[in-house]
């Protein structure tokens, strides 16, 4: 009987000691470390420049979460909104100062479009020059002389039908060192079925803190463990997208080591999420 009591007592003390150790260890970690331990992500930057990224999706909550290719930065998508170019100049939610050019885009903005394909079709020497990267057909001086004479014949001013995509994100530095993230590394992929139509970098609109005081460089600097909530956006045009078709949009970090975009598989690549899976921002 005495032996049983002694054995049970030892077991109880051993369990209590184990629980105490776990509690002490847990409380010694920062909240960020406890989160990373729970999700299995690394605390220190992982060098992954030659492999395919395997960003982790959030397992809890409604906002999808992805990691950048080096697993140093996490991007949680809180919501999104798509605005047509007819409405972009009259909306008041996204301020002009945060757009690329510092003003609201013009709903009827115009760009010069030069039809190089028609130029090459009409002038075989130009086609030979361009397709040989400047080695055949004509000299570089002759090419620029040709452009001086004929550029206007093949150039028109058009208004491209456009859509503006905005993403409210929470971006977090997962490491124990200061890190930088280019907003342009968050991209939007426009697809029709399995066909990639176009890619746009976000940062065309960005209302978060800037890493530099001079110029408008959408680089986000984060201290260890720091989180920043911001809106980043892009513009897609009808140069390669027929908006009348059923277009699917995906947003995230371009996978490292992707040899060509036909390998992009948004259903499997965890660094990219479907925009349709995000919460739509319906606020005015």
């Amino acid at each position: 009987m005495r032996k049983i009591i002694t054995t049970v007592t030892v077991i109880i003390f051993a369990l209590a000691a184990a629980i105490a150790v776990i509690l002490i260890e847990n409380n010694s970690r920062t909240p960020m470390e406890r989160y990373l331990h729970a999700t299995g992500a690394g605390v220190n930057a992982a060098s992954n420049t030659n492999g395919v990224s395997d960003g982790i999706k959030g397992t809890g909550g409604a906002s999808p979460v992805i990691l950048n290719n080096t697993h140093t930065v996490e991007c949680e998508f809180l919501n999104y909104e798509i605005i047509d170019d007819a409405d972009i100049a009259s909306q008041t939610k996204y301020k002009g100062e945060f757009f690329e050019e510092g003003i609201l885009p013009d709903s009827d903005y115009a760009v010069e479009y030069t039809d190089f394909q028609a130029m090459m079709n009409d002038h075989p020497e130009v086609e030979a020059f361009i397709s040989s990267n400047g080695k055949e057909g004509m000299t570089e001086a002759e090419y620029y002389e040709f452009l001086d004479k004929h550029y206007d014949e093949y150039t028109t001013v058009i208004h491209p039908e456009s859509k503006y995509l905005f993403f409210r994100c929470r971006i977090t530095n997962l490491t124990d060192e200061e890190t930088f993230e280019y907003l342009s590394s968050i991209k939007v992929f426009a697809m029709c079925g399995n066909e990639l139509l176009d890619i746009a970098e976000t940062g065309f609109y960005y209302d978060g803190p800037m890493s530099a005081e001079d110029g408008y460089i959408p680089v986000l600097s984060l201290k260890p463990g720091e989180s920043v909530e911001c809106v980043t956006g892009c513009r897609l045009t009808d140069e390669y997208i027929d908006f009348s078709k059923d277009i699917s949009y995906y947003v995230g970090f371009e996978p490292v080591g992707l040899d060509n975009y036909s390998q992009l598989n948004p259903a499997l690549d965890k660094g990219i999420v479907a925009v349709s899976a995000l919460q739509e921002d319906l606020t005015e």
Binding site: E100, E101, G102, F180, G203, S211, A212, E213, D214, G215, Y216, I217, P218, V219, S221
Partner: peptide, 18 residues
């Protein structure tokens, strides 16, 4: 160094957004 390069680039004609 990177931060310094960013700071300089906005002034010295490095590639910037505008």
């Amino acid at each position: 160094i990177f931060a310094a390069a960013i700071a300089v680039s906005g002034v010295a004609g490095f590639a910037t957004r505008a």
